[in-house]
């Protein structure tokens, strides 16, 4: 029975979930949990926050399954919910993100100043690299950030990113090009001011 259920395709799972079948919902969660957490983590940085948000994403999937018209792939729909939830989370917690940005920048400068007194080459730690990366990612526009995260964190092809974002493939290419340029510029500016 379990084998039969686990072989159900995504649309069958959604049909069963619409009828309130929790077993099918569990199968869907287990199938997509890594992907959803990975996407949320790309936006939020913190693994704990990403897991919490991923739970919310799946609950929204369950509740809005009745509205799913099966005109797109279940994975595309699920990714879209994860993206929207992540962007909303950042928007709702803008204050926290701005504050954390400032405090990160302050902490980073303090670390850098301390390091400059003791070492000629200012090495930055793993945690600092990660902070810098997410600060730079958060400085991108929502669309650039989304295209970059779906491509780099989830390795999705352009055509799937275009379906999730509802834009053309050429727009995805353009968004990715600008995202990489901006990300690189932000990171190099940061290193230039704080690290070198």
């Amino acid at each position: 029975m379990t084998q039969f259920v686990s072989n159900q395709n995504d649309h069958d799972l959604i049909s069963a979930i619409k009828d309130g079948d929790h077993d099918s919902f569990r199968i869907l969660v287990e199938k997509y949990q890594e992907r959803v957490i990975r996407i949320c983590r790309g936006y939020l940085g913190s693994y704990e926050d990403a897991e919490d948000l991923a739970q919310e994403v799946f609950i929204e999937v369950y509740k809005s399954s009745v509205k799913f018209r099966e005109q797109s792939e279940v994975s595309t729909w699920l990714y879209r919910i994860a993206v929207n939830r992540s962007l909303n989370y950042i928007r709702d917690n803008r204050k926290k993100f701005i504050l954390s940005k400032r405090s990160d920048s302050y902490e980073m400068s303090a670390i850098e100043n301390k390091a400059s007194g003791s070492s000629a080459d200012n090495e930055i730690t793993a945690g600092e690299h990660r902070h810098v990366l997410h600060l730079a990612l958060n400085s991108l526009s929502d669309n650039q950030k989304t295209a970059f995260i779906l491509n780099k964190y989830e390795d999705l092809p352009y055509i799937e990113i275009s379906s999730i974002m509802g834009v053309s493939i050429s727009s995805v290419e353009s968004l990715l090009f600008r995202a990489k340029r901006n990300l690189q510029k932000r990171l190099l500016d940061y290193y230039n001011k704080n690290m070198l």
Binding site: V29, Q33, E34, I37, R38, E51, A54, I124, L133
Partner: peptide, 22 residues
């Protein structure tokens, strides 16, 4: 430095889901 920072994307991609997440 850019290589190290961007390298963390590959590290963060490795997700080990908390047991009992579902």
């Amino acid at each position: 430095k850019l290589r190290v920072s961007l390298g963390y994307i590959d590290i963060e991609k490795e997700v080990s889901v908390t047991p009992g997440f579902a």
